[in-house]
Design a protein around this nucleic acid. Sequence first.
DNA 1: ATAACTTGATAGATATTTTCTATCAATGGT
DNA 2: ACCATTGATAGAAAATATCTATCAAGTTAT
Lengths: 297, 297
Amino acid sequence: MLDKLEFILALAREKHFGRAAEACGVTQPTLSAGVKQIEENFGVLLVNRGSRFQSFTPEGERVLDWARRIVGDARAMREEVHALKHGLSGRLRIAAIPTTLAMVEKLTTPYRARHPNVQFTIYSRNSFEILDLLENLEIDAGITYVENEPLGRVGTVPLYHERYRLLTSADAPLGNRDSVTWAEVAQVPLCLLTPDMQNRRIIDRLLKSAGGEARPTLESDSMILLYSHVRTGRWASVMPAKIADTLGLTDTIRAIPITQPEAVQTIGLVVPSREPMTPITAALVAEARRVAASLDD
Amino acid sequence: MLDKLEFILALAREKHFGRAAEACGVTQPTLSAGVKQIEENFGVLLVNRGSRFQSFTPEGERVLDWARRIVGDARAMREEVHALKHGLSGRLRIAAIPTTLAMVEKLTTPYRARHPNVQFTIYSRNSFEILDLLENLEIDAGITYVENEPLGRVGTVPLYHERYRLLTSADAPLGNRDSVTWAEVAQVPLCLLTPDMQNRRIIDRLLKSAGGEARPTLESDSMILLYSHVRTGRWASVMPAKIADTLGLTDTIRAIPITQPEAVQTIGLVVPSREPMTPITAALVAEARRVAASLDD
DNA sequence: ATAACTTGATAGATATTTTCTATCAATGGT
DNA sequence: ACCATTGATAGAAAATATCTATCAAGTTAT
């Protein structure tokens, strides 16, 4: 039964019987039979099919909702019992938005010191994908904006406040300033994240409200790529202070605070609101609470 | 896996492998093997055995906790999906303390009018047993005192306030009064519920604080038995107003309000705090909210 | 329009798991 | 010391799950 519910979860992720089967490590007929068995057992069609996967029926959506919870709880049970006997071990899966990648070590380093047997997998994803992964039990926690966009059934732990810097060569226009306004930044050609990233949308909004418009000369979903361009001295970018500091500046590149408004976004840890949490996740939340104070300068 | 968790639940209830197996409709070796399999799967002993069931290990207690939740959710899923397709049907299992039995129909009658395909099973139990049954998923809801004793992880809906009456023959001492005090009641030989009932403990407390002591001439766990004695005119009792009214008084038997203090206890519906509730339980809660207003005179 | 491909269902064989019956060893009470 | 109770174990039988191979219905490309 539990395996069948896993089939349903996989099918919801993949929207494809064959791929869902592969994801579960079974053959396609096995997965088809599993889904069908639940349908017969419940006396209700769960999936609308027409020679291929189309969608879940309303009943299917409800089952999906329950399946997520039940499968999640079953995993949490396993993990908790194992932790009681053998201490914390296993794999902690985190997804973070790119602008926060540089600070993830602030969490993982002390965590690892406390629980050396836990392994980490960290994905770089945009904020929507993070919520999706959380929902589907594919990650244990996310690091993303916690106050702007509507979050689902999740708990949050604020970590720090994101402030923005103009990264530019010292001898470029504005390069000699101690602070610049968003209106001024709007005049500069910038390297920015792609628009599927929330950071980009925030910056767009700030530029727009300062009367400008974002016409980035270069877009990427990789902070490393953006930074490597800025580093040449021939490109400029707007980045959160945290990541600008971490990447390290050369003497010729400056990180200039942007004011009017001094925009601030709260970045936080996002975890499934399961009660109780898995021990691995609970430990991460504890670590986040400890670390949060020291992260805002 | 889910069946194995059911085995664990049954074992917790019965504290006996054989009886637990019987309760699950399997043979004892099957249940033993099921428990053992979970233990091997988790790599932890769950049950302390010594030629017989002794207790759960700490890990076992945790598994038990999770099992209750997971099994409960699985049942709720089934029920919800079925209700989506076929409307509300199935069996609603309620346990009520004896003093409230006469008012249960105030809930079940309108419920049945709304959902004719739901069947009812109603147990008469004391308040501890009710919480135990709730915990073990053996009932869907309880009707009991909701403010005195500590309740577990449950939701409550207040229903009405219980007030007390002295039931006695009109020609007995106090029989001609319009109201009596607890101090006066303490002088009368009474028929009362057995001390495992919370109602009895409440009355004991009230009598004691009025300087008296309960020396019941007759104890029973059955309200019918108590009432049949009172009805002869040769016995007296203290009962909640609700049940006294329902049982119907003869001309010779009076129900006299007891004052100083005018004691009031809140009776309410108690349901597992599962989110969301099963549809059958949710409908009962809705009914309880509707009915509550009309129950207090 | 037709061929080639994709997708999920179905059938039948095989493998795995589950459950049962029968029996045993350990413990406890009398 | 004896009998009853309790849970574990072994081996057979039954039920279930999974796999391979194949098919039918749609889709896409030519």
